[in-house]
């Protein structure tokens, strides 16, 4: 069974936290990720910097651009993941746009991921229709694979995504890109309902625009977890690792 799904299946509300690999440096990103895990996130989403991140808002764009400027290379990713998984038990999912994986070689990337102790991969610009090689190799290696489902996905597409995802399905809360939003869309409930309808056993986490303790709680009333990204990057920028830790603690406060 999926380590990520197991982590989400334990009692209580769940928080999935994003941080960009290599930001601001590789070592600093490892420390930040470990600190987030130790402060209470349930799953780590470790982002691969990419030159053309069309699903990301300005906060994450600027952070990942800086990581690239500071010399981030794909081969360092696996060292970083190895370091994180040797220090904490939290499942680590690598979040990456597709072209870096393609250039590395899908099967080779997957093998490196597995060897580094990562639980699997989240692929924001890869739909299951184009994912034949990834579906095959992730089955072979038992890696989690998280696809996205959105408010505009048809029932049929939501069902396919649900059936082909492992770990959880990433329910996109609102139409848009990453970045903090004041109001969490009620659209999110609809996306989750479609996924539950397709497979009541499948885990589902809601992301895009979540930034407050209230939102994390609200999402956990109907989903298996809340995904938070931009606000962690912002906290880190404002007050370093201490601010990041207290943001995690703030978001997980009273969850259980």
């Amino acid at each position: 069974m999926s380590r990520t799904a197991n982590a989400l299946a334990t009692p209580g509300a769940k928080l999935i936290g994003y941080f960009p690999a290599g930001y601001p440096t590789l070592d600093a990103s490892v420390e930040a990720a470990v600190a987030m895990c130790e402060s209470g996130i349930d799953v780590l989403e470790f982002g691969v910097p990419y030159s053309d991140p069309v699903m990301d808002g300005l906060v994450i764009q600027h952070a990942t651009e800086e990581a690239l400027r500071n010399g981030f290379k794909l081969k360092n990713l696996f060292d970083a993941v190895r370091e994180i998984t040797s220090r904490v038990q939290t499942p680590v999912l690598v979040m990456t746009y597709w072209n870096p994986v393609l250039q590395f070689g899908v099967a080779e990337f997957a093998r490196e991921l597995a060897a580094s102790g990562a639980a699997g991969m989240i692929t924001p610009d890869l739909i299951p229709d184009e994912a034949a090689e990834w579906l095959r190799i992730s089955d072979e290696l038992g890696l989690d694979r998280v696809f996205l489902s959105t408010p505009t996905s048809s029932d049929q597409r939501a069902a396919t995504t649900t059936n082909l995802s492992r770990g959880f399905v990433y329910a996109v809360s609102t139409m848009g890109i990453t970045g903090a939003r004041e109001d969490l869309d009620k659209l999110a409930r609809g996306v989750v309902a479609k996924i539950r309808n397709a497979d009541p056993e499948q885990k589902v986490a809601v992301g895009i625009g979540i930034s407050t303790n209230e939102q994390v709680k609200e999402v956990n009333e109907y989903a298996d977890g809340a995904i938070v990204g931009s606000v962690f990057v912002t906290s880190y920028q404002e007050g370093g690792i201490e601010a990041l830790k207290s943001k995690v603690r703030e978001l997980v406060a009273g969850l259980n």
């Binding site: 069309v54 699903m55 597709w98 924001p124 610009d125 890869l126 739909i127 229709d129 184009e130 696809f147 996205l148 489902s149 959105t150 505009t152 996905s153 048809s154 597409r157 995504t161 996109v172 139409m175």
Partner: peptide, 12 residues
């Protein structure tokens, strides 16, 4: 060719 885009755009 193909469609290497976020799921959000598939319906459109």
């Amino acid at each position: 060719g193909g469609r290497f885009v976020p799921e959000s755009l598939i319906a459109a």
